[in-house]
Structure formats: C-alpha cells, structure tokens
Amino acid sequence: MNQGHDLSHITYEGSGNHASTQVVIAVSKWNTQITEALFQGALRVLEEAGIPASQIIRWDVPGTYELPTAAKMAMVNRPNIDGVICLGCVIQGETRHFDFICQAAAQGIMQVSLDHAKPVIFGVLTPDTDQQALDRAGGKYGNKGEEAAVAFLDMVDVHRMAKS
C-alpha cells in the first residue's frame, strides 16, 4: 500500500472527552455509492471517539455545491453544535463544471468555518475517475471520510483549548 496516498491509518489520538460533542454531517446525494461509504467511515470514527449516535446528525443535501449552505444552516440554526463535516464527491467530466463546483464548495466551506470560528471539515473527493473515488472511499487508499472525522475531532480539541 502506498502510504503517500493513504492517510486513513491516522487515528484520533486526542485526549478530549467527546461524550458531549455534537456534529452535523452534511452528505451529498450525488455519487451516493461514494458519499455513503465516506459517511460510514466518518460515523465509525466519531462513535469510536465516544460521540453518542444521538449527537451525530446527518443531513442529506442535493450535491456538493450545496454543502456550504448546509454548513451555514447548521451553524446558524444549531448554535450548540461543535462543527460540521461536509462529505461529497465530484468526479471530473468533460466540461469545466467540475472546476466551478469544486472551487465553490472549497471556498464556501472554508468561509463558513472562518465566519463561525468552528470546524467545518472539507471531506470532498475531487477525483478524475470513478475508480479513483472508490479507491478513496474504503478502497486501496483508505476512507477519506475517516480522515475527515479525525480532522473534526482534532479541531474540536483545538477549539476547546483556544476557549480555555
């Protein structure tokens, strides 16, 4: 296995107690086979870290473009959440549509995080092919949903440390 591409061996090693952590996971309905695998990977990591299932809130959204709006809605309407994990997959096609969607999603997700000073994690795959997406959604390069969940947990710890 090429360790240069598989970061899923990284596990949450923080010492934070996450029994009270609340998270919204926004999941794109586009490329469902991929995004469902990403969600399952993220869910496993969050539950292993001690977050009760009742505090992991899943929101399905039409596509990756809608992830920043869902993240903003979560921050505004659920002020007690600790953050959002955005999961999506945009596969390169024959037009520049790919570029516009990926850029808008990345910038939008980052903006929501900056505006609210809470973690909003970019768990969006941007592969060239279906096979590359599968390889990163539980395939030979691990599960990027797991990596997104580890990043979320680490950033929740940083957020709590910054507030203390």
Rank of each mutant, 00 (worst) to 15 (best):
N17T: 05
H18C: 05
A19M: 07
S20P: 04
V23G: 00
V23E: 00
V23A: 03
I25V: 07
A26R: 03
A26Q: 02
K29Q: 14
Q33E: 13
A37K: 04
L38F: 11
Q40K: 15
Q40D: 10
G41K: 02
L43Y: 12
L43R: 12
L43N: 11
R44Q: 14
V45D: 02
E47S: 08
E47F: 05
A49M: 07
A53F: 06
S54G: 08
Q55V: 02
Q55R: 15
Q55N: 15
I56D: 01
R58C: 04
R58D: 01
D60Q: 13
V61I: 08
T64I: 02
L67E: 00
P68R: 01
T69I: 15
T69G: 11
A70E: 04
A71V: 05
K72F: 12
M75H: 09
V76K: 15
N77Y: 08
R78P: 03
N80H: 15
I81Q: 06
C86A: 15
C86S: 12
C86G: 05
L87D: 01
G88I: 00
Q92Y: 14
E94C: 08
T95V: 10
T95Q: 10
R96M: 10
H97W: 11
H97Q: 12
H97D: 07
F98D: 00
F100P: 08
F100D: 08
I101K: 03
C102M: 13
Q103T: 15
Q103A: 13
A105I: 07
I109D: 02
M110N: 09
M110S: 12
H116I: 12
H116A: 14
V120F: 09
V120G: 05
I121M: 11
F122E: 05
G123L: 07
G123I: 03
T126R: 10
T126E: 04
